[in-house]
């Protein structure tokens, strides 16, 4: 339980920029270092987090916490992921006006933005490997077809992620 709290404190404080930024931390700390869940489970949680209300980091924390230690685990992980960023935000809310135009913050962000990209890309590669490597060619072909359809649907037709998830679910049932 204590480990759970420590891990989610880290996920909370290091995930800059919200949403997907928490993914690489959950992946590294929960799957690679602690083996608390499998890649498939993790990807399912991301999908569920997309379809249910609330931030991905909070949803993942609640879900993983519940899987490991039931209600108390869910509560511990959720408080853990929220605690440090909330303290930081409450402190900064006071000095908001001065901070807004600060050169320091802009400087830090210049490094943080590419770092977040590198981190998410790392997680994406690991998730991609578990989705594609080790399957028969036919399964890989079907997966690529789904990927292309979902990409076109989201990027060119600008559809909502939730609709894309439903579409991919239907495609999964039809093709697999």
């Amino acid at each position: 339980m204590f480990r759970l709290l420590i891990v989610f404190l880290q996920v909370g404080v290091f995930s800059f920029g919200g949403g997907y930024a928490a993914i690489p931390f959950i992946e590294q700390l929960l799957i690679v270092r602690n083996e608390w869940m499998a890649y498939e489970e993790f990807v399912d949680i991301i999908a569920i987090a997309q379809m249910s209300p609330g931030p991905i980091a909070v949803n993942s924390a609640t879900f993983v916490g519940f899987n490991l230690e039931k209600f108390l685990g869910a509560l511990t992980a959720t408080i853990g992921v929220l605690l440090l960023p909330s303290l930081i935000s409450i402190t900064l809310a006071k000095y908001f006006k001065e901070f807004k135009k600060s050169k320091y913050i802009r400087g830090l962000l210049k490094g943080l933005r590419p770092a977040v990209i590198g981190l998410i890309a790392t997680a994406e590669i690991s998730i991609g490997i578990t989705a594609f490597v080790g399957y028969s060619n036919l399964v890989i072909l079907k997966s690529v077809i789904i990927a292309i359809l979902v990409f076109v649907f989201l990027d060119l037709f600008d559809q909502h992620p939730i609709t894309a998830i439903f579409l991919s679910g239907v495609l999964g049932v039809l093709l697999f």
């Binding site: 399912d44 991301i46 933005r113 997680a123 789904i146 998830i165 991919s168 495609l171």
Partner: peptide, 22 residues
């Protein structure tokens, strides 16, 4: 079966998030 498809969609969603960030 549905979640096999949905996992692919999550990959694409993360890819598009990367594109927007980039």
């Amino acid at each position: 079966q549905a979640f096999k498809g949905i996992r692919i969609a999550v990959l694409v969603l993360i890819l598009l998030a990367l594109k927007r960030l980039a």
